[in-house]
């Protein structure tokens, strides 16, 4: 595994909100073409970790590199210097802060735990919007329709993607009117439309029944191969995680408590304890 090309490297990422340390000194790697899962009980800090990769949050301490380039880095400053409560002693880092749109342009796409589609727009427009950021046009050429070749290319690519995803027949439907499962599919399609090399999925199987979950498992493998992706996902459905993941990281109270291949994780006493300890609260 280690000889594979590194895609994502999180180094001692700490994210603190006021006094709450949501992610505490998290270090992890995702390598090319892998499917890596991040698991942990509710409130463990998984989504927060994702938000630190995509630039929605600027980490309090630590750095994130994508394909060898540092995209986010920071060290506690100002008031946070006094408040800082992470385990890692902060070293001085040159702050780097790519905004979420820059991160997307570099090739990281994501889906959200609570689906975030453009609800009042059509399925087609939801996908088409992803093409805007790389289109060669400006506001004048677009308004005066001098960009019609570029516009046509964007439309063709979006249509092709919808066809591949089996959503073409729904292209004129309003996104929010789709059933839940299809909304999740559309959100993945929309993420793929940004031409990512790394795809982050935040609980893609949430709310799905066992059969749908099984279909999703195949689907994730399929898109990884079709689009040459690396996949990093958060998931609660253990069957799916164990079946699909090359490696698993386990987070509890913001800290990494275990990492390894599925077999190692399944039998790790710390992991079992973390899950049993909160099993009453797990809603499914």
């Amino acid at each position: 595994m280690t000889d594979k090309k590194n895609i994502l490297h999180m180094d001692q990422i700490t994210m603190q909100f006021g006094g709450v340390v949501a992610v505490n000194g998290l270090t992890l790697d995702v390598n090319e073409h892998e499917i890596v899962a991040l698991i942990g009980p509710n409130g463990a800090g998984k989504t927060t970790a994702f938000n630190c990769v995509t630039g929605i949050y600027q980490p309090t301490y630590g750095s994130v590199s994508f394909q060898g380039e540092v995209i986010l880095a920071d060290t506690p400053q100002g008031k946070m210097r006094r408040l800082y409560a992470g385990d890692v002693t902060p070293a001085s880092l040159t702050p780097v802060h790519k905004t979420p749109d820059q991160v997307t342009k570099l090739g990281i796409a994501r889906t959200f735990q609570n689906i975030r589609l453009f609800g009042n727009l059509t399925v087609f427009d939801n996908v088409l919007i992803a093409k805007h950021m790389r289109a060669k046009q400006n506001v004048f050429s677009a308004t005066l329709r001098l960009n019609h070749k570029e516009e046509q290319r964007m439309r063709d690519e979006s249509m092709e993607l919808l066809q591949m995803q089996g959503l073409a027949h729904l292209k004129d439907e309003i996104a929010s009117s789709l059933p839940y499962g299809l909304q999740r599919r559309l959100e993945i399609a929309r993420a793929l439309a940004t031409n990512p090399s790394l795809l982050l999925l935040d609980e893609p199987a949430a709310g799905m029944n066992p059969q749908e979950t099984q279909e999703l498992t195949d689907f994730i493998r399929q898109i990884r191969d079709d689009y040459h992706l690396t996949i990093f996902m958060i998931e609660h459905h253990m069957d799916l995680v164990m079946q699909i993941s090359d490696r698993i990281y386990v987070l509890d109270f913001g800290k990494l408590i275990a990492q390894g291949v599925p077999d190692e994780i399944q039998n790790n006493p710390k992991v079992i304890e973390a899950y049993l300890g909160v099993s009453d609260n797990v809603d499914d």
Binding site: T54, I56, T99, P100, D101, Q102, T104, K105, A109, R110, F112, R116, L117, F118, G119, N120, L121, D125, I129, A130, H132, M133, R134, R190, A191, T194
Partner: peptide
Amino acid sequence: KAIREDEIAAQSMGLN
């Protein structure tokens, strides 16, 4: 319109 619908999703589509 994407920004009107959802700012965070719009950002994740590469819109500044």
